[in-house]
Design a protein around this nucleic acid. Sequence first.
DNA 1: GCAAAAGTGTTGTCTCTACACCCATGT
DNA 2: ACATGGGTGTAGAGACAACACTTTTGC
Lengths: 246, 246
Amino acid sequence: MTNKKMNNTISVDCVIFGFDFEKLNVLLVDRELKNEAVGGEAFTDLTLTGNHILENESLEDAAARVLFDLTGLENIYLKQFGAFCDPDRLKRPNDQAWLKASGRDPGSRIISVGYYSLLATENVTLKWKGRNVKWYPVSEVKDLAFDHMVIFKSALQALRRELLHEPIGFELLPEKFTLSQLQKLYEVILDVEMDKRNFRKKIARMKYLIALDEKQKGVAHKPARLYTFSREVYEKNRKEVLDFNI
Amino acid sequence: MTNKKMNNTISVDCVIFGFDFEKLNVLLVDRELKNEAVGGEAFTDLTLTGNHILENESLEDAAARVLFDLTGLENIYLKQFGAFCDPDRLKRPNDQAWLKASGRDPGSRIISVGYYSLLATENVTLKWKGRNVKWYPVSEVKDLAFDHMVIFKSALQALRRELLHEPIGFELLPEKFTLSQLQKLYEVILDVEMDKRNFRKKIARMKYLIALDEKQKGVAHKPARLYTFSREVYEKNRKEVLDFNI
DNA sequence: GCAAAAGTGTTGTCTCTACACCCATGT
DNA sequence: ACATGGGTGTAGAGACAACACTTTTGC
């Protein structure tokens, strides 16, 4: 419990998604190598957030710790989606230089377990080890450090898949949200367009989406009704269905 | 390529499922400790198959290698379903004794990445490091060594989930199979009963299930038509659908 | 009063469920 | 001839896709 020693071959990487009612974003951190002495050129690029696990810590706890260090939030939705351990995953020149500069053995094999998490993005303030942390639109992410592009793509795929089959979209919205916001979320993440009336008919069948006696305020149009998600109602009524059609 | 050195903190465990047209089975290996000198009592129990990865080997290759050593088969369906790294996962007395007896450091932290695989079970001969390997009905599995019960349950859950949404059941059947065999497979794995006529109507809509001009032989009843699965047709027509209903 | 998003119904087509009998083969 | 699993159709209920107009608010 008080053992803070790090395990140097096992790490977690967190792909943190946020939604701003317009697009899906992901949190990335600047990686800046100024010192050319370690054998590479100076460079700046981007990584996911992550860390090595502590010797007495579970993977999930390590991911939650990264998330807490970053946002100060606890009990965030976290989902393990894959383990990444290719022999070459840290072998590009910039990555080798970075490992050397931060005092780690650039030759050692490190496995990273990926977790994605979903954040209702309003009112989150971000700080991480004095490094720059920023939201980037998912559609514009490219050229991440290490094998983080592979990890990121895998997370996105896992998220899309999960979103199709489980009610996790709500994790990206504030507790109270409008149906248009929910529809937009599905449209953006799944890259589809949906019909408003049909979407609402579908919603109407989901008993766990609860209409509140409350409306949006301060919008320059007819204010929308607010809804909330009830996990209890969902858990009571869940069923699954053969759907690998066509 | 020729580096055969083992990595001693990263391993894979394989949950190998087979189907005998009646029930779902899983491959387990005897773990037998005869020598009481290492500090525990002698015991016999069961484990999944698995191994440490080689220093220059990917996780998937390691899992494929375990499978090949066991069955002599290549190109088997393999799916990563989770990483297991609880601090206590190897800490039960029998596990500690076993690690000592096989010359490993019982205190070191080992991460295991789980793969499940699906085997058409007929005509497979099994050999593994001179240990006893056997099929066990999934419904009767209990008390596995290490944290293998956790891993096994997680694999089963992943398999069920995958089976609902992806056409992987065919991996458990011979290349040519009858519709009743396929239906039985779904019934057994998902623990449901299905209506024969409705099942067949559903199948009829799946263009990638191809009826052959061939029938069962040597059965004491009307011989069934044989079908086969075409992955090409499937890949051409796949689409997904919002289905987290009710 | 105008811009902007909210909210609402109908119709035709497809999919789901429930249910019972005859057929082809081996013994 | 009989036992065994193979194979087939229909009807009613629910879900899906396509489509356009009115309402409420802030400015």
